[in-house]
Amino acid sequence: MGFDAEKFLNTKMQPRTADVPVPGLASWFGEGEPVFKVRGITGQELGQAKQAVATRKDLAALVDGIIGGTSKEKAESAKKILGMGEAVPEQVALRIHIVRLGSVDPDLDEEATVKLCTCYPVEFEVIGKKILELTGQGHEPGKAEASGVTPASEAR
């Protein structure tokens, strides 16, 4: 029996999720266990993350090309204004986007994700690896939602 495309297309799918313990971040969790809830990202999101890294690299090269000939200081200043002041390795930049997109609770913005990467690189790496692991496993068939209470039939 081959792949059942019709069944595949008609099956509701949901991203896989997992809880990632982050004991090093306990100071910022108040009551309860220090845990990040993460999800696998979609193919589109993975593509967006890769494109963001490529765009940033292209923009840095463009700034160097336009301004770099006149003054290295001006080029560095322009890159800093555009948020490209420090050389961030491509894999780190990609992981920042992946962690931002795959974090469910807490829902991290880019600034918080960069600070997590900078200040807690081990926890950042563990979270990112789990998101990539879930992404690699693909979505899972969704659980059937309860249809609610069926109203009783009226007597005729």
Rank of each mutant, 00 (worst) to 15 (best):
V122K: 05
P106S: 00
V149W: 10
G138F: 02
V104R: 08
D105Q: 08
G138N: 08
K143M: 10
E90T: 12
L116C: 10
I98A: 08
V88M: 11
M84A: 15
G83A: 15
V122T: 10
Q137A: 14
K143Y: 00
L132M: 15
C117A: 14
V99W: 04
M84I: 14
I81L: 12
E111W: 02
K143Q: 11
E125D: 12
E86T: 15
E140C: 04
K80I: 09
A144F: 02
E145T: 06
A144N: 04
D109G: 01
A112H: 03
V88K: 09
E125I: 03
G142V: 03
L82S: 09
A112K: 05
T135A: 11
G102W: 12
L108W: 07
E140D: 07
E145M: 07
G102L: 13
G138Y: 03
K80D: 13
G142P: 00
K79N: 10
Q91E: 10
A87I: 03
K130Y: 02
S103R: 08
E90Y: 10
E125R: 12
T135E: 06
V88Y: 06
P151A: 04
E123F: 02
P121N: 15
T135W: 10
I98C: 11
E133H: 13
E123N: 01
S147W: 06
R100W: 01
L116M: 04
G148C: 00
L101M: 05
G142S: 06
P141W: 00
V149G: 07
S147R: 04
P106D: 01
I96P: 07
P106I: 00
E125S: 06
E145I: 04
T150R: 06
E145G: 05
K130W: 09
E140T: 09
V114E: 06
V122F: 05
G85I: 09
T135C: 13
E133M: 12
E145A: 10
G102D: 11
E140K: 07
G83L: 03
L134Y: 07
V99Q: 03
L108E: 09
K115Q: 04
Q91H: 11
G128A: 13
C119I: 13
A78R: 11
G142L: 08
P106G: 01
V104W: 07
T118H: 03
V126Y: 14
E110I: 06
T113K: 02
V126F: 09
